[in-house]
């Protein structure tokens, strides 16, 4: 899949419920972290990764759709911790240009 489209066109968006699972997923899709299961484990994709509740995503989503699909979970999840975890992975794996 990652080879099918230009890498700069692709974005991975997560819906994980905890900071730890978000970090592990984000690592998997950026560095191919092999320690966790999943469809993408073991492949180094180097794709940009965000959580759906991060402001960078949320601000672009239709407010009505966001309200219906995500707002309740945003109230329930520790979104600040999740955002920190995913941001941390983005920062540490920023491609050298």
């Amino acid at each position: 899949m990652a080879e099918q489209y230009p890498r700069e066109d692709m974005v991975v968006v997560l819906g994980t419920p905890t900071a730890e699972s978000s970090r592990l997923y984000a690592l998997t899709v950026t560095e191919g972290d092999p320690s966790w299961a999943g469809a993408l484990a073991g492949t180094s994709l180097g794709l940009p990764v965000y959580h759906v509740t991060e402001e960078a995503i949320k601000c672009q989503v239709s407010p009505e759709v966001y309200e219906e699909q995500v707002t309740l979970m945003e109230m329930v999840l520790d979104v600040a911790d999740i955002a920190d975890a995913v941001q941390g992975v983005r920062d540490s794996s920023a491609p050298a240009v």
Partner: peptide, 12 residues
């Protein structure tokens, strides 16, 4: 890393 599933459900 899978969190506390019942707690999450109760919060919802």
């Amino acid at each position: 890393g899978s969190g506390n599933v019942p707690l999450l459900n109760y919060r919802v």
